[in-house]
């Protein structure tokens, strides 16, 4: 119908794509001694992340991705697939066995895994925040909502009590926590409200990267919907680079534009989120999508 034309007949446009804010290369975490043979004895083809050679668990291996400001990347997979391990390595909760994670900051690019512990803590205070599935991990439950938010602020050098209180009340208002609960202990809050306080705390110092680990798992459907809506609008307001770990495709579809699918510690597929949902290639992704759609 049309004549055969050679390659390159069209002048190719160069596209402006947002530059990465966080770039992860060949990240791996192994529990137990390992060498190439141990690594090769695990993974999706073998059907396990635990090596039959020496019992080492290759929780995550060879995970690479980039996230730009204003973009949310999903990490999808069943429990035990390694997605939370990746997130915890980036958060600094778990030491990676291999790999690099570079973060763009005002002061230049930083290799996160090479920082000394105090610099790493500093990064967690003002640049990279985490919202955990379990509010008890991200919050001190025996402290008030306002006190929890004051913590990263004072760590970042805020000293004036009035300013700290104003900032805390601004954040709680934004995350739709009633201001009259500001001085109540978080312990007494409902699950959804705790999650909102955790989000408020994460945003305290306007981080450029936020990691969300199953942020709505375990909440009632309507409460989860409210928290999801909040996260969605926050991601739209602030040019945050976000990583969203979830096993729930509804969460992934709503928040992310691109995804990595993990199984047995490896990335088995990565694609745009609509591609994964409508044209999944890997057998594991096809199973996950079929399960979510039935």
């Amino acid at each position: 119908m049309t004549t055969e034309v050679e390659y390159g007949r069209y002048p190719v446009a160069r596209l402006a794509v947002p530059e990465w804010m966080l770039k992860v290369e060949r990240l791996g975490r192994v529990y137990g001694p390992f060498d190439d043979a141990v690594i090769a004895s695990t993974g999706p083809e073998v059907g396990s992340s635990k090596s039959a050679l020496n019992g080492a668990v290759v929780a995550a291996w060879d995970v690479s991705f980039e996230v730009a400001a204003g973009e949310a990347l999903g990490l999808v997979g069943e429990s035990g697939s390694g997605k939370t391990t990746v997130l915890r390595c980036l958060a600094g909760d778990v030491a990676p066995s291999r790999g690099e994670a570079r973060l763009r900051t005002a002061a230049g690019d930083v290799s996160m895994f090479e920082l000394d512990p105090s610099a790493r803590r500093r990064l967690r205070i003002d640049t990279l925040a985490v919202v955990y599935q379990d509010p008890a991990e991200g919050l001190k439950l025996n402290i008030s909502a306002g006190g929890n938010i004051a913590e990263p602020l004072t760590a970042a050098g805020w000293r004036n009590f009035g300013n700290i209180r104003n900032r805390a009340s601004e954040l709680l208002t934004r995350t739709e926590v009633p201001i009259n609960r500001m001085d109540d202990l978080v312990r007494g809050f409902s699950g959804g409200m705790k999650q909102r306080v955790q989000i408020a705390k994460a945003l305290a110092n306007s981080p450029s990267v936020v990691l969300f680990d199953e942020p709505t798992t375990g909440l009632d459907a309507s409460v989860a919907a409210g928290v999801l809506d909040l996260i969605r609008s926050l991601l739209e307001e602030h040019r945050i680079a976000a990583i969203v770990v979830s096993h729930d495709f509804a969460v992934i579809e709503m928040l992310t534009s691109r995804c990595l699918v993990m199984q047995h510690g490896r990335v088995v597929e990565n694609a745009l989120t609509d591609q994964l949902l409508e044209d999944p290639h890997h057998p594991y992704t096809q199973r996950l999508v079929a399960a979510a759609r039935s």
Partner: peptide, 29 residues
């Protein structure tokens, strides 16, 4: 590109005289 074609090209003009092949772009592009 909601579906990922097996092969072939989809040239789209994006400025006067400038094109991209949707099949060879990165996800971000």
């Amino acid at each position: 590109r909601t579906y990922r074609p097996d092969s072939g090209e989809v040239w789209l003009q994006i400025h006067a005289g400038e094109y991209v092949d949707m099949c060879s772009l990165s996800d971000a592009e």
